[in-house]
Simulated assay, not measured.
Amino acid sequence: MSEPTAPRVPAMPAVRRQALRHHLMNEIDRPARRPRRMLILAPAAGVLAVVVAAGAIAQPWAPDSSPLIVTVEQGDHSGAMLLLNRMAAAADRSGPSSGEGKYIYIRSRGAFAELGDGPARLQPVYEREIWIPRYERGDGLLRQPFFDIPIIGVIPERETLTNVTPNAELVNLPSDPDALLAKLYRERDERGRGTSRDGGAFDAIGDILRESLVPPQTSAALYRAAAKIPGVEVVRGVTDAVGRRGIAVAHTDRSRRNEWIFDEQTYEYLGERSYLVAATADGPAGTVLGTTAVLQRAVVSKLGQRPER
């Protein structure tokens, strides 16, 4: 299955994106003391997975960088399969409406936790724009706030991304949910590190949903595959990074719950949220580790072109 009108291209290991995005959260050894660092959202093709020094940006919620805590609601395991299959059926009824253009444009906002000695502290929400080649591997573009990374160096506000995996390659996935899930498990097993096998598959699907333009039929296959992952649950009354309320499809791994947030009526993807469900060295249960909101997806003709808002 591929994006409408897209040429057939080899499938990309989806877990490669997942590994980079979740590397800091899932594979950090915890010494007795370590410098504080902030998680940064990696671009679509896994170009960046970095940490930034504490204090680079002022806190939006509290002047003392207090952690943001949410209530850990009880998840509904029995409702997850019902919801995901209902979402898949709705996607099956949708027609292609992506339009013509050479690049996928995605505008989002997000905030990620600063980790180190003591509780995790959520950094400010910042806006991010990314342009991804639609059909052929090539240059992309990333715009987000200026960061100065101690080890990596300066990440400018505008950065050209080279050799980016095209959107068509990312969404070229098996239409059969069992085959799709087997592919994700196989890629997780090949990597052999990080999250659990089920958590790795869940996160890989989330990466595809978050920062790509997914055809309706591909979305349907992803939802049906997610319904088969053990431990998937529904959490109601959640909010994304800009305060929009929705319903979440969630999975818990290593005391951390990751959620995909959807509009409860239209099933439109809104964003993600990640937080602790049990007390750890990073904070008490409910400590938010990341929150995002996708504000706009579009197809544009030129790199750097913005669609109408």
Rank of each mutant, 00 (worst) to 15 (best):
E3H: 09
A6W: 01
R8F: 09
A11N: 10
A14D: 09
R16F: 14
R16L: 15
A19P: 07
H22L: 12
N26G: 11
D29G: 08
P31F: 05
R36M: 08
M38Q: 13
L39P: 00
L41T: 14
A53Y: 00
A53R: 14
G55A: 03
I57G: 00
Q59K: 05
P63N: 09
D64S: 04
S65A: 13
L68C: 07
I69V: 12
V70H: 03
V72W: 02
Q74N: 11
G79C: 01
L82E: 13
N85R: 15
N85Q: 13
A90D: 10
D92M: 10
S94P: 00
P96K: 05
S97L: 10
G101N: 07
Y103P: 02
G110D: 06
A111I: 03
A113T: 00
E114C: 01
G116M: 02
G118W: 04
A120E: 01
A120K: 05
R121G: 03
Y126F: 13
R128V: 06
E129I: 04
I130W: 01
I132Y: 03
R134K: 14
E136F: 10
R137N: 07
G138L: 00
L141I: 05
R143H: 10
R143D: 06
Q144M: 15
F146L: 15
D148H: 12
V154A: 13
P156G: 08
P156Q: 06
R158T: 15
T160N: 03
T160R: 13
T162F: 11
T162V: 14
N163K: 13
A168Y: 01
P177L: 02
L180Q: 04
A201Q: 08
I205R: 02
I205Q: 04
E211R: 11
P215L: 00
S219M: 14
A220G: 07
A221Y: 06
Y223E: 08
A227M: 02
K228N: 11
I229R: 07
G231R: 08
V234T: 09
G237C: 02
T239C: 09
V242Q: 09
R244P: 08
G246N: 06
A248E: 03
N258H: 12
E259L: 14
F262N: 06
Y267H: 13
G271L: 01
G271R: 02
E272M: 13
L276R: 04
V277K: 08
A279P: 00
A285M: 04
T287K: 01
T287N: 07
L289E: 09
L289N: 06
G290E: 14
T291K: 07
A293P: 01
Q305I: 04
R306T: 11
R309D: 12
